[in-house]
Amino acid sequence: MRRDALRSFGLPAPDALIGIGVALALVAVPLARPGAYLLGFLFTIFMYGALAGSWNIIGGYAGYLSFGHAAFFGLGAYTTALLLFYFGWSPFLTLPLAGVLAALFAALVGYPCLRLRGPYFSLVTLILGLTMYSLTLNLPFTQGSSGLFLPFLRVDVYTSHVIFYEVMLGLLIIVAAVLRQITRTKMGVGLTAIREDEDAAGTLGVDATRLKLQAFMLSAFLTGLIGGVYSYYKSYLDPSFVFATSISITIVLMALFGGRLAWYGPLVGAVVISIVNEMLTTHAPPQTARIVFGVLLIGVIMFLPDGLMSIAQRHLPTLAVRRARHPATRDEVA
């Protein structure tokens, strides 16, 4: 009853309220003049949260798990970096271009690749990531194998941290808003239909091919934007940083860990994994830290196989669909 009462006042749903509240709090953080390390650490969290979220559009919602999203990330990163390196154009201005290029690349490869289902799509995207790495390494104009040094922002180091913090936070907010909005529109329903049973979706009037491609391009566009900011932040770019398969895998891991069916799932996954990782690294001997991390991963996924957000799934808006519980009536065996 409360909820309807709130609605009648024209207020958005509870999850949006929380989201807006958190966003405002985060935007205001630099006012407290925290250390540069905290800003940098939060930058990394925002970045992975945004990456996991963008991935989720095609991976979580549509069920097409891309193992090569680093390709778009790197493409965006190199776009702004090369434009800065060769022409001196500020990445903050060329950022949309980074996203657009990534989206065009997605359109190019998406059309053939999205025809593959399940594991084959995952594997072909993995190869795509590896291919982009190899290409960047070998093409002369990318300065691939010698590394690319970029000029710094012409402000003091603390201000530059704040600027990047806010920009990446902005991207994260955009990604979160897009993710949430999808769940409330026909696109979300369509993607769910594709995820659950793509062939049946066609009979329901869902243009699967077009919708998948749109989702793929949107996901790539956002990922490219994030990459575009990243290269400027780093000031030194090497193909192994941005095209690394480990980035692709980490993004997938975070989204799955957090729960891919909720719009906040990947974001929470990114936050939790980043913080746990950080705490372990600074408080435990190196190998032990990694082992504890692995054990935690195993432990959590055994109890919450659908991700952390499955705790809340029953109560909050997600793209979950009630499924038959008995294994024999599902196609999956394990």
Partner: peptide, 28 residues
């Protein structure tokens, strides 16, 4: 149902804030 839902929301909000606070306490 609504009460448990609200409790859930507050718990989540609390957890989220705690997570950020822990991260903010860079002074480990």
């Amino acid at each position: 149902h609504h009460t448990s839902r609200r409790q859930m929301l507050w718990a989540m909000l609390g957890a989220w804030i705690v997570a950020l606070a822990v991260g903010a306490c860079g002074q480990a």
